[in-house]
Design a protein around this nucleic acid. Sequence first.
DNA 1: AATGAATGAGAGTTCATTCAT
DNA 2: TATGAATGAACTCTCATTCAT
Lengths: 229, 229, 229, 229
Amino acid sequence: MSVQNEQTALNVSSVTGRPLTKRGEATRRRLLEAAEHVFADQGYHEASIVKITERAGIGLGTFYLYFDSKQTIFESLVVDLNQRVRHSMAEAMTGAASRLEAERAGFAGFFHFTARHPALYRVVREAEFVSPDMLKLHYTRIVEGYEAGLRRAQQQDEVDRTLDPEIAAWALMGMGELIGMRYLLWERTADGDGPATLPDEAFDALMHFIDNALSPREHGQNSKEGENS
Amino acid sequence: MSVQNEQTALNVSSVTGRPLTKRGEATRRRLLEAAEHVFADQGYHEASIVKITERAGIGLGTFYLYFDSKQTIFESLVVDLNQRVRHSMAEAMTGAASRLEAERAGFAGFFHFTARHPALYRVVREAEFVSPDMLKLHYTRIVEGYEAGLRRAQQQDEVDRTLDPEIAAWALMGMGELIGMRYLLWERTADGDGPATLPDEAFDALMHFIDNALSPREHGQNSKEGENS
Amino acid sequence: MSVQNEQTALNVSSVTGRPLTKRGEATRRRLLEAAEHVFADQGYHEASIVKITERAGIGLGTFYLYFDSKQTIFESLVVDLNQRVRHSMAEAMTGAASRLEAERAGFAGFFHFTARHPALYRVVREAEFVSPDMLKLHYTRIVEGYEAGLRRAQQQDEVDRTLDPEIAAWALMGMGELIGMRYLLWERTADGDGPATLPDEAFDALMHFIDNALSPREHGQNSKEGENS
Amino acid sequence: MSVQNEQTALNVSSVTGRPLTKRGEATRRRLLEAAEHVFADQGYHEASIVKITERAGIGLGTFYLYFDSKQTIFESLVVDLNQRVRHSMAEAMTGAASRLEAERAGFAGFFHFTARHPALYRVVREAEFVSPDMLKLHYTRIVEGYEAGLRRAQQQDEVDRTLDPEIAAWALMGMGELIGMRYLLWERTADGDGPATLPDEAFDALMHFIDNALSPREHGQNSKEGENS
DNA sequence: AATGAATGAGAGTTCATTCAT
DNA sequence: TATGAATGAACTCTCATTCAT
């Protein structure tokens, strides 16, 4: 799906297929925003369309002018959040002087976004059970960007050339996910308040770990060895 | 919860709190076994008490003699699975000569378990949305063991002493989860067939990445530095 | 409702009661035509205003400039169809030399119409449940004509004078309805293809039955007798 | 479907397929009885499961232990009414000395039943739009019995041998239906009160008409002739 | 005269849980 | 100890109708 498609997708009703008026587009936005909060707070199954439309301040029936079903808006939300987190990361990484700096900036962008939009975390992970294909899409899109960056850095000897960039990308993503869960979401109070981003010590410790993993070694002693049992 | 408690839990009704007769214990076992299959096959929300009791060959009302609710039996299952996956990992690590070997063995044990019981592992992951506390317990128990192992290895200079073992443990767990999802669960066909474990190349590449991250550096150049933006 | 009324009804808005402009009249026509097809294809309850306006190529809101409600346009249709089936029958009977010939021609006209517009006739029958008064009107109008014909024939001794013409008319109508349903509508394939009219044998057998019922008996042995139990 | 099947069908849940307990059978009966009234009063589409269960004094969810859906209970009702009207007619005809007497008795039984159970009429006719197959079954079962009776009477020269008994049976059924509608149902007040059966004059007039149609003619002048246009 | 976004009452249906047996 | 009929709150979704444009 090209960027062009992603953008125009927002201007077309997913039910009637016709382009939305300005008013219609605003309504759609309000629904998505409400859905983000409701899904994040209550989870997919506890969420209901009534709760979403009430939060959006919109009539129940109106929902069905914009989305086919609860599943549909959920999937739209995953796509939406995916775009936004990637945007947030890309923006943070702009102008980074080195691989390390870019790495830090990218992770910082991710944690910032996650802290501000806990929905990202919950909605995306719950997608595994609601809409597995959307989950794949989400992870794959992010990993692809990551992997490309690692390959470029390897060519410039900023990253250990003996690493498999695909595996490394998935591993890095996994770290981000679990650390985000542990240090951002689990720290949230029942009121919904939580840290604005990862504490510095944790962030630095993680970056140190990652730096260790990626940095080129002085000597070639890191050749692959051993067997998978 | 001590091991003693975990074991005796099976001999006591979780509803009345009284010890079970032999017959009662058998009924409880059948319910748990049926629940394991039903939750694994259909997921928490699609599963129903009727399906569980039918599979167990037991009357619907009987269920409530043994469990308070659907959620209760689900949590019992998560505890059970947590024990089993930790057992699988511990067994694999027994007798490892070095930190690296233990690392390999532990991950291999984890991937084996996941590959063999993909649906069961699904239950654990779904716990995030059904019973968040159980998920915390599950992750925390695993991470604690990991962290302790890292600390011991650091004392013997098998692991970089400048690493934060807690962060490292969560990071490693995150890798395992996402790589397992990507290369084990996603590779399964619709028939339910999938790889018996992680492919060697992927496994070796991951271990190489981890080894990089954990191995002590010759010089002190890896000191922490930089700011969290 | 006189013929004059029936005709002018088309030139007046059934909502505002004011005469329609040429453009307005065209719109009303398109709505009625679309409604005829939609009601015939899908039945009253499956039909929806949206489907009708879409088929008419007209905005949804516009519908309510011409008709009060779904029921209103349905009733307009029933009136229209009643006129058409009576016209079809009357035309067929024109110029019949004898009572028997007229009888044959009238039934033939009815069966022709039903066979050619089975779905339209469905609309009329469904009126029994949507708008009972319209159905009464429909049946009564047809029966009245029938009854008048029977009375005239009795005066000319072409029909048994001991018969009650009202009962006979309703009985004849009932035959036509059920036989039409049985041998025309039920014989239609799923593709919508069916006989062009009643098979000759069936038609002749029915006419024979009717002739028996109506023909004057030689002797007076058919006087009314017996008790209703 | 044999009589044996029809009887045992009532002892088995149409949802679970298991035999019903005495209590279960009573509940099923109450639902059918309530459905008869609700469908008759309000029609299929206006009827709702809530209305049915409320009238039956039964919880909403209980409905689904006995019937899959509104359509299912409707069809069960058609079958039930069909059995009862045929029973009512057969009983009335028992011991009739002659064909004419049997005819009178059968029609009288039909009108009695219709007058007491207006549901029969409304439900059966509405079946044309709700469940066409059930309608066919209903009419066909009744007509088959009728036709067989006519054939027997023809062999004994009690009925005109030149008549086609199948056509005659459908014609007779059509008369009964429309006359019943006209003189029983249309005469009902809004309170639901109506005549206990057909007025004597109407009934006698109808029987006279039928007798004309069926009685053997003295001479053979009634041979079939003419063309279907 | 024409439009279509918005509405909400009310539909059919599910299922965890209760309780009389 | 075991049962399963009964329950009803809560769900998703439809569509005739309104009204601001």
